[in-house]
Amino acid sequence: MKILFIPEPKKEETSERSPQMIKVLKRKHEVVFLKPEEYWIKKRSFWPLRAWERFHINKKLIEEGKKMDGIDLVFCRDYTFALPGSRIARHLRKPCVWDSEGSMKAFWEDHHKYPTQVLPWLPAEKWLSKRVNYMITVTERDRRGHIEQGMDPNRIHIIPICVRSELFSQKTKEEARQALQLASHETFFLFFSNFNYLPNRMAINFLNEKVAPHLPGKLLLCGQGNLPKKLHPKIEYLGFLPLQKLYDLIRASDVCLSPIWEANGTLTKVLDMLGHGAATVITPAGQKGVRGLQDGVHALVAQDKEDFIYKTLLLAKNPTLQSKLKKSGPEVVQKNHEWKLYENQLLTLVESFGNNGH
């Protein structure tokens, strides 16, 4: 089967969902791309310009997609690419699959935050749910949200966010610190993310203003995007790191932090932290997408911002609790969020989508 995957992901190694899906699909099928991700998304600061530019980019790419030969299935990452992808699939008279990493309706009902950014997308999500043929999403909560938006329950399936433990760093904490040239006896906290995403920027501001002043050590930040103009002296920004260096950094850290209060689906960073056996403090938003995760067993789950500060300091000062979480964290990932558990399911679903047509 020949699958058109939209968009072509970035080239660097990553634990993100789409590149890992593509690796699985390529084992049995030919996978082709229309354009790289960078071509589809232009970074305009003023949203009307972004919308205008996106319309014209999509229009051009739809015309290119209509000319592609031998396509059996159009596979789209999230709603941004499912909008033009569904048009291409309809012209080619082939089925379209939307891989949704989270329902906007579920997000709005759970949080009622960011109305100017979320509410305009609800009608688009509803419209799109009726124009794709099949959907894959990541949690039962997101599945219900999409069904409420009009998606046929028989055409929506769940494959959770997953990681590959074989890619994890195999270094000990001491070896990782030596490789990264970090002090052997200092206490290190870690947060990593894409800082262009609003909830992540809010997390950075919270860590910078409220958490860092209390830390008995240094907070390491890595990722790319907009940072506060002035970082607290206890924060060190390391920039964007390749995947293996990031994984070494997780190994080298004493406590990992994820103060994300509003999120869709599952946070991959939480799986990376837990999978490495990191002692981790998260929020209910980080907990909800991880199957079987229990507060105090696999990670500490803070219920509000004051609780987050309290549990961060509690974990930093309690080596026994750190050791407990480091042993149990990987178990929940290995049991429920390893790619090898779902690879055959993905291949079976995709083959059924192609065979059943549109």
Score class of each variant (00 low, 15 high):
residue 262 E to F: 14
residue 264 N to W: 10
residue 265 G to M: 02
residue 268 T to R: 02
residue 270 V to Q: 01
residue 272 D to N: 14
residue 272 D to P: 13
residue 275 G to Q: 03
residue 275 G to S: 08
residue 275 G to D: 02
residue 283 T to R: 03
residue 285 A to L: 07
residue 287 Q to H: 05
residue 288 K to H: 14
residue 288 K to R: 09
residue 289 G to Y: 01
residue 289 G to L: 02
residue 290 V to H: 01
residue 292 G to W: 03
residue 293 L to R: 00
residue 296 G to C: 07
residue 297 V to Q: 09
residue 298 H to D: 03
residue 298 H to C: 05
residue 299 A to L: 09
residue 300 L to P: 00
residue 302 A to S: 10
residue 306 E to N: 15
residue 307 D to N: 15
residue 308 F to A: 04
residue 308 F to Y: 15
residue 310 Y to F: 13
residue 312 T to S: 07
residue 313 L to P: 03
residue 313 L to M: 08
residue 314 L to I: 08
residue 314 L to D: 11
residue 316 A to K: 03
residue 320 T to V: 09
residue 321 L to K: 07
residue 323 S to T: 14
residue 323 S to D: 12
residue 324 K to W: 05
residue 325 L to S: 04
residue 326 K to I: 06
residue 326 K to E: 11
residue 327 K to S: 10
residue 329 G to N: 01
residue 329 G to D: 02
residue 329 G to R: 00
residue 333 V to Q: 03
residue 333 V to K: 02
residue 335 K to Y: 03
residue 337 H to W: 05
residue 337 H to V: 14
residue 339 W to S: 00
residue 339 W to D: 01
residue 341 L to C: 04
residue 341 L to P: 00
residue 342 Y to H: 15
residue 345 Q to C: 08
residue 345 Q to W: 03
residue 345 Q to I: 13
residue 346 L to P: 01
residue 347 L to R: 06
residue 347 L to V: 07
residue 349 L to G: 03
residue 350 V to A: 09
residue 351 E to C: 12
residue 351 E to R: 07
residue 352 S to D: 10
residue 352 S to P: 03
residue 353 F to P: 00
residue 354 G to C: 11
residue 356 N to R: 15
residue 356 N to K: 12
residue 356 N to E: 12
residue 357 G to T: 15
residue 358 H to D: 09
